[in-house]
Nucleic acid binder design. Sequence first.
DNA 1: AAATCATTAAAACAAGTGTTTGAAATGCGC
DNA 2: GCGCATTTCAAACACTTGTTTTAATGATTT
Lengths: 208, 208
Amino acid sequence: MAQLDTKTKIIKSAEELFAIDGFHHTTLRAITAKAGVNLAAVNYHFGSKEALLEAIFDRHLLPLNNIRIKRMQAVADQAEKSGKKPNVEEVLRCFTEPTLALLHRDSGTGHFRMLVGRSLSDPDQTVRQLFLKRVRGVIELLVDLLCKALPHRSREDVALKLQFSLGAMSHTLTFQNQGLILGSVDKSKSIGEVIEMLTDFIVKGMEG
Amino acid sequence: MAQLDTKTKIIKSAEELFAIDGFHHTTLRAITAKAGVNLAAVNYHFGSKEALLEAIFDRHLLPLNNIRIKRMQAVADQAEKSGKKPNVEEVLRCFTEPTLALLHRDSGTGHFRMLVGRSLSDPDQTVRQLFLKRVRGVIELLVDLLCKALPHRSREDVALKLQFSLGAMSHTLTFQNQGLILGSVDKSKSIGEVIEMLTDFIVKGMEG
DNA sequence: AAATCATTAAAACAAGTGTTTGAAATGCGC
DNA sequence: GCGCATTTCAAACACTTGTTTTAATGATTT
């Protein structure tokens, strides 16, 4: 961390603390202490605590969304050409699988993954809105594609089931490595295996 | 609200504010102002803000859990007697359906329902722990019963899938009436219909 | 009616928050 | 080496938080 510039040091520290403790419970003093920089540095470089969160969102969410959109467009094109409707699993995988790539960027710590999980369910409206602003487009696209895969279902039902799915995903990304609900949660499973099971779970629920 | 005693006035107000704004974002000043009582009343009657949350949890969660446990024991007994394993759907319904009863107690406002949804995913460890302390027993029992219904699955996998389910449920209970993720979420559906769809969703995911 | 107890009230308290300030230090082009 | 812009720093600021205090009020019992 020592040879990084101040801005990057702040981002890295904040990412970890936001992920573990949540946005509001994380103080600027904790962030700057961990980063080894002065308290005022956050406001100098980012403007505000909230703007720092936005910078962190942008840093990861924009590339992630691009991957998702490209994959979804590929699936849509394929369906267009072949005249066949896409199937639910391949559509949902456009959304869930890139999360693993996100993980690798993160050098295995999974902090941003946790932060993403948190953001959708954060009690603070501001946090949710900053997050949703960046994913709403992708989700709309996902609903469109799912509707093509499930032409006998109404758009409202598809959207509701997707909400179930995102809830499951959000909670899993946040708490998977804590075995939070139960002591008996399997900590031996890699996050890849967990996402695989999760994908399967929501595919079955969506199709059913 | 006027003819209620101070303690009840505080509980009612806090319930609503905790549900809508979350525990930490709700101030004692907001609670007491809404209740029309003095600021010091919370600490006088409950001891602390945290103890107030515990009182609210106890008020609803204890009866709710009793209903769930009774239903689960009935299903377990039936399976014992008939020699047949219980099926996944009837087991999960022991857990999801009493939520509706909770709703009616609530006189239709659904505030405590939202609070329950929030508590499982709250960024604050204290809130989660106070909540989990009160539901862990029921969840353990639920895992036991699910394992009987799905003897070919490992307990770890069952627990993980249940975690997916609780994530979906938590998010739905909290945000259903906000149509938060998508503008296109169906607001015309009653909470009963939503829970019905949710139950179906997690049954399919659990069985698959 | 007096005395004891529970409750309410206004005010202050101590601690913590994000943010701002103004001066010191640093880096860089000339 | 000078001058200027950028960055760092310690300190203070303005505000909010949960909690405590101390006195006033109300109710209950003897």
